[in-house]
Simulated scan of single mutants.
Amino acid sequence: MDPEAIDSLSRVAHGGEADPQLLDFSANTNPRTPSGVATVYEAALPASRQYPVDDYCEFRAAAADYIGVTGNEIIPAAGSLTGMRLLFSVVVDDGDSVVVPTPSFGEYDREIRLQGGTPEFVPHDEVMAVDPTAHDLVIVCNPNNPTGESYETAALRSLADRCAAADTVLCVDEAFLDFTDRPSMAGTPGVVVARSLTKIFGLPGLRAGFLVATGDLRERLDVARPAWTLSTPAAAVGAHCLKDTEFVEETCEQVAAERERMRDRLETRFDVAPSDAPFLLCETDQSVDEVVDAARDRGVVVRDATTFRGLDSHIRVAVKRPKQNDRLLAALDV
């Protein structure tokens, strides 16, 4: 990590509201969790008096089965962001050039700078056309946050092939891919996939996720990862959730239906971006502060999306349960 970079950087703004009296649409997490989570967590607590078994066999097996790879390709992480920090620490050296999509997840920029790398910002809809020979790492967010669009599989595979030929690592952040019918890039040589249990399973505080990598890069990541990466309860709950594919299917159907219903209403006031994710990016011709404040006065929190690089007139709203979504729509006067 670059000590000078630490002195020049600050924290990144995120969604999330701590006030329980407000309905939070600023964070894109599932309002539902799989059944049995509390029971599994409580059952794991007694074992927390000992260190976790560092191979995480059950968690790796569940993650591998969920995503369609072998267990040894899974690198456990305390959330996908922790996994990406591990990846960047392994592959990014001082001065390395890293393609970062924009607008996109703000932590990419900060994490690359913390490792001494140089972010090269590319519009998110032009990332598939980048020349990887000019860069040391390429980052793709699929679907992209905050815009919501996912990339065509053929375009992603073409980029992966070009990256492999250039010996450039491709990192694909698939935090929201569970909400789509797109295939994962997991198991593709030269590609490191980052996955999160936060979004689809509605457990942001659990801090559980994983990377998927192959070959020598997988070996290096597994050696470099911190010992006891996941707490015992996080590993147990994570494995439990990853086995509940019926919950995932139901969630995807519900989110897709509600997303389109919300879009129809929101488009009466905002310019709404296409989305395959559990959120909608809305451009307004009014003051963003006024829109955000008016919604909050009505008990609803929406994300001020001007905190994303390149956006200056946008809000982002999550997709939740029908009655919750109705409250959002009323708060936004649509």
Results as ranks from 00 to 15, higher is better:
residue 158 S to R: 15
residue 198 T to H: 12
residue 221 L to H: 02
residue 239 A to Y: 09
residue 145 N to Y: 14
residue 241 C to L: 05
residue 232 T to I: 10
residue 235 A to F: 00
residue 150 S to K: 13
residue 155 A to C: 11
residue 158 S to Y: 07
residue 132 P to S: 11
residue 215 G to H: 12
residue 222 D to L: 04
residue 140 V to L: 11
residue 197 L to Q: 14
residue 185 M to W: 07
residue 191 V to T: 11
residue 228 W to V: 06
residue 135 H to W: 01
residue 176 F to V: 09
residue 240 H to V: 08
residue 158 S to M: 10
residue 180 T to S: 13
residue 167 D to K: 12
residue 202 G to C: 03
residue 238 G to R: 09
residue 135 H to G: 05
residue 154 A to I: 13
residue 177 L to E: 04
residue 223 V to M: 01
residue 234 A to H: 00
residue 219 E to M: 02
residue 127 V to N: 12
residue 222 D to F: 03
residue 237 V to M: 09
residue 156 L to S: 11
residue 150 S to R: 14
residue 236 A to D: 04
residue 169 V to C: 08
residue 153 T to D: 15
residue 203 L to T: 13
residue 191 V to F: 05
residue 132 P to Y: 05
residue 154 A to M: 13
residue 145 N to S: 15
residue 161 D to R: 01
residue 153 T to Y: 12
residue 214 T to N: 06
residue 191 V to C: 10
residue 193 V to S: 15
residue 215 G to Q: 12
residue 218 R to F: 01
residue 207 R to N: 15
residue 183 P to H: 07
residue 204 P to Y: 03
residue 158 S to G: 15
residue 170 L to D: 05
residue 180 T to L: 05
residue 159 L to Y: 03
residue 224 A to L: 02
residue 153 T to W: 06
residue 232 T to S: 07
residue 205 G to S: 14
residue 168 T to V: 12
residue 197 L to F: 09
residue 241 C to K: 03
residue 229 T to R: 11
residue 206 L to N: 04
residue 192 V to W: 02
residue 183 P to A: 04
residue 209 G to Q: 06
residue 204 P to N: 11
residue 135 H to K: 07
residue 234 A to Y: 00
residue 134 A to P: 02
residue 134 A to R: 08
residue 176 F to G: 10
residue 203 L to Y: 04
residue 181 D to G: 15
residue 201 F to Y: 15
residue 169 V to T: 15
residue 217 L to Q: 01
residue 206 L to D: 05
residue 147 T to R: 10
residue 223 V to I: 03
residue 174 E to I: 11
residue 229 T to L: 07
residue 168 T to K: 04
residue 179 F to L: 12
residue 164 A to Y: 00
residue 213 A to N: 04
residue 239 A to Q: 12
residue 228 W to H: 14
residue 134 A to Y: 00
residue 161 D to M: 00
residue 162 R to W: 01
residue 184 S to A: 14
residue 208 A to V: 14
residue 164 A to T: 03
residue 219 E to W: 01
residue 207 R to V: 07
residue 151 Y to G: 13
residue 213 A to C: 09
residue 221 L to C: 10
residue 126 E to V: 04
residue 134 A to V: 03
residue 134 A to W: 00
residue 213 A to G: 05
residue 163 C to F: 00
residue 211 L to G: 09
residue 178 D to H: 15
residue 135 H to Y: 06
residue 215 G to S: 14
residue 242 L to F: 07
residue 231 S to M: 08
residue 146 P to N: 13
residue 149 E to C: 13
residue 165 A to I: 00
residue 206 L to P: 09
residue 128 M to R: 11
residue 227 A to H: 08
residue 229 T to Q: 14
residue 196 S to F: 08
residue 217 L to K: 02
residue 242 L to T: 09
residue 144 N to E: 15
residue 160 A to N: 01
residue 177 L to H: 07
residue 218 R to S: 10
residue 159 L to I: 05
residue 228 W to Q: 07
residue 163 C to K: 01
residue 177 L to V: 14
residue 204 P to G: 09
residue 228 W to P: 03
residue 237 V to W: 02
residue 199 K to P: 05
residue 170 L to H: 01
residue 168 T to L: 08
residue 130 V to G: 04
residue 156 L to G: 09
residue 149 E to M: 13
residue 203 L to M: 15
